[in-house]
Design a protein around this nucleic acid. Structure first.
Length: 708
DNA sequence: GACCTGCTGCGGGCTG
């Protein structure tokens, strides 16, 4: 039977009415499999390939919506995506008289109330709203979700390797617990290199089937080089970028919010001078939500208008902005996974060949960018981060479960957490230790035979901040005569009469209200870019190894323009002085009169760890992670000794890590709930997340090949 | 340590 014939009559009618020419591969495959069994699935294909329909057409065909209770739960990482998908899912469900309800912090309360009175249909929710329901209204969870048949997780790749993903896993596990039967999970994913982590979200990885549409599209890449010497982007680069983009729909990814503003304003100015279009925007987390929505609407409008949006990862996820002709990457993207998502935004029109334009402003950025592109062509994607000992999320969920139950014995609590598949690799004794610690710090309290939330715990679990596992920065609102422009972190630059760039416009600061955390601005003509944080994230070791391979071979690359080819050639010649014969086990070392430069060509986490270990032995190094280089100053030590220093005894290491935590209290600041853990577990998180001691230890077998 | 993401309950004021 064809995929179409498998669908229910109502769904077939919907498909006919839409006059689709046929199903995409991922849709046919999903319909055949999902109609056939009750298993868990991951549907993987590129953005805008119809994954939502691939999941919903068969699910709507087979699920009985006439029984009391919500039958299908759709979970999304973004409110914006829920609002987008609501329109599509409601379109699908409309004729079939299936109720679709949005359930997130900005959704209508009266519609939520209606659903509670008569639970049915499809619900679209965020993980945090689900958490809030478990913690505050556990009876609503049962009322709504005890007969769920399907859970659809959108953009599941965005949850992988993150605390938020562990949180979601725990919520799904708890949801299976309240279900009278059991539900199937369908995860929608971008193309990944390795699906082992994605499969774990279903609770039984071994029974989860991945349906993958590997079709990628034709893509031309061009590298251009303009060296940046000052604090602003080179004018030649901006002029070239303007010429390359003025007649098309373009996304520019400059890696930081400040640079995005710089790009948008600079291009707008050039365009004004030469009489070009005025459609230059910026789009990132500091731009006001309504302004962002306007930009998204502008981009997906049916009317053909050219535009350029300078953006950050806000436009990496699946928010619908239609198709763009060209994607521009300014300096190296920090990961291949991210590059793939960005590239996926271009050339959505069938058959249209799309183009990726890569600008570099320094030799090392060019080298990293080229390495990233070559790895992309090889099909390499960074393997997902594995978080199998999430003690911090365990602590959070211990509080949440205790609140949900309004009292639970210690034994039951430990058993429930042990049973939760988000924590399956954490030992029962460890869970008990964390629970005992929560009692000791008054987060939990023993009342008779039961545990309840303690005095200190009440302050935490009743706060608005309890429902998320990630930290929010503190921002000042930027307002111009009553209109919201955006929000920026407060820095020394934020003073009256200073200029800032925001939402692709220049503003002068009139007044800073510290109590209301508000900045009054008026339009101005010239300005410095707003000072956000610097740039650079953790780079995977494979990218650095590829950079070294490029330096130590003679291959020519057609994607390089004349300037960038010359630049690669130049840096190659600098490295030809090192007589390396075995790239896998040797690293270059530049011997100066008073200083050594060690080039490790490895990932950021290993570099950080090497730096830490050498520091313990009294060898102070200056780490430049972009170049993966350690400067060793002063009395140059015996190089052989440097390698031996990399294996401290374990007791020693824990002692030093503990000191490190006290000296750098912010080091685990990303892990919001870790601060409440016993020191022992904070140490473990530090080893697992911030450092890579195994990776660093490999360097004891490497030899440093010197040259002057 | 780049870029992101999300949230309650309750009371007061306003609108229809």
């Amino acid at each position: 039977m064809s995929a179409f014939e498998l669908l229910s009559p109502a769904v077939r009618k919907f498909v006919r009415d839409k006059r689709w020419e046929g199903f995409r591969d991922i849709q046919s495959a999903a319909i055949k499999r999902i109609m056939g069994d009750e298993g868990h699935y991951i549907l993987a294909s590129r953005t805008a390939s119809g994954k939502t329909e691939a999941a919903f057409l068969p699910i709507l065909s087979k699920v009985d919506f006439n029984k009391r209770g919500v039958a299908v739960l759709y979970i999304s990482p973004l409110i914006a995506l829920i609002n987008d998908q609501f329109i599509r899912v409601e379109d699908l469900c409309g004729d079939m008289e299936i109720l679709v309800t949005k359930w997130h912090g900005e959704a209508s309360r009266s519609l939520k109330g209606k659903l509670l009175k008569d639970p049915q249909g499809v619900v679209l929710i965020t993980p945090e709203s689900l958490e809030a329901m478990f913690a505050n209204k556990p009876y609503d969870v049962k009322n709504l979700f005890s007969s769920l048949k399907y859970v659809v997780i959108d953009e599941i790749h965005s949850f992988i390797g993150s605390d938020r993903g562990v949180h979601l896993k725990s919520l799904l596990s708890r949801l299976q617990g309240v279900n009278t039967g059991s539900f199937s999970v369908v995860g929608l994913s971008a193309t990944l290199g390795d699906f082992s982590e994605a499969k774990k979200f279903t609770g039984s990885a071994e029974k989860t089937v991945v349906l993958r549409d590997p079709a990628s599209k034709d893509l031309d890449a061009v590298f251009k080089y303009f060296e940046q010497t000052g604090h602003v982007l080179p004018l030649d680069l901006l002029k070239d970028l303007y010429r390359e983009t003025r007649d098309s729909k373009v996304l520019v990814f400059p890696n930081s919010r400040g640079k995005a503003e710089e790009v948008a304003v600079s291009l707008m100015k050039i365009s004004e001078r030469v009489g070009g279009h005025a459609n230059y925007f910026s789009h990132h987390s500091s731009v006001d939500k309504q302004v962002r929505e306007y930009v998204e609407e502008f981009a997906k409008s049916k009317v053909r208008r050219n535009f350029t949006i300078a953006c950050t990862s806000t436009l990496e996820l699946g928010i619908d902005i239609g198709s763009v002709d060209q994607v521009v990457q300014l300096d190296a993207a920090h990961s291949i996974a991210s590059l793939i998502q960005r590239v996926g935004r271009s050339g959505r029109r069938e058959g249209a060949k799309s183009r990726l334009l890569l600008y570099a402003t320094s030799p090392w950025s060019l080298l990293q960018s080229l390495a990233g592109w070559l790895l992309y062509l090889e099909g390499f994607i960074e393997p997902p981060e594995v978080i199998d000992h999430p003690y911090d999320i365990l602590l959070h969920q211990a509080l949440s479960v205790t609140k949900e139950r309004l009292g639970i014995t210690k034994k039951e609590l430990v058993a429930e957490l042990k049973h939760n598949y988000a924590f399956e690799l954490i030992e029962e004794a460890e869970i008990m230790e964390v629970v005992e610690h929560l009692i000791a710090i008054d987060f939990l309290e023993e009342l008779g035979r039961e545990l309840i939330i303690g005095v200190e715990g009440e302050k935490i679990v009743n706060g608005r901040d309890f429902y998320t596992v990630f930290n929010a920065q503190s921002y000042y609102k930027v307002v111009s005569s009553g209109t919201g422009i955006g929000q920026i972190p407060f820095t020394a630059q934020v003073r009256e009469n200073e200029n800032i760039l925001l939402a692709a416009k220049i503003w002068k600061i009139r007044f800073v209200d510290h109590d209301a955390k508000k900045i009054e601005v008026v339009p101005a003509n010239d300005g410095r870019k707003p000072l956000f944080f610097g740039e650079g994230g953790d780079v995977h070791p494979r990218i650095r190894e590829k950079m070294m391979e490029i330096l130590f071979n003679e291959e020519l690359f057609g994607v390089l323009d004349e300037n960038s080819a010359r630049e690669i050639d130049k840096i190659r010649r600098e490295f030809h002085v090192f007589p390396l014969t075995e790239l896998g086990l040797q690293r270059p070392m530049l011997i100066g009169a008073k200083e050594l430069d060690l080039y490790s060509f490895t990932g950021s986490r290993i570099n950080r760890t090497l730096s830490f270990l050498w520091g313990l032995s009294g060898v102070e190094v200056r780490l430049d992670d972009e170049q993966s280089r350690f400067g060793v100053e002063g009395a140059v030590p015996d190089v052989g000794a440097l390698s031996k220093l990399l294996v401290p005894s374990l007791d020693d290491l824990d002692f030093h890590l503990e000191n490190f935590i006290y000296a750098h209290p912010d080091v685990l600041s990303g892990a919001k709930w870790a601060v409440y853990l016993p020191v022992k577990y904070r140490l473990r998180l530090l080893k697992l997340r911030y450092f890579d001691f195994e990776g660093a230890e490999r360097f004891k077998d490497y030899s440093w090949v010197g040259a002057r």
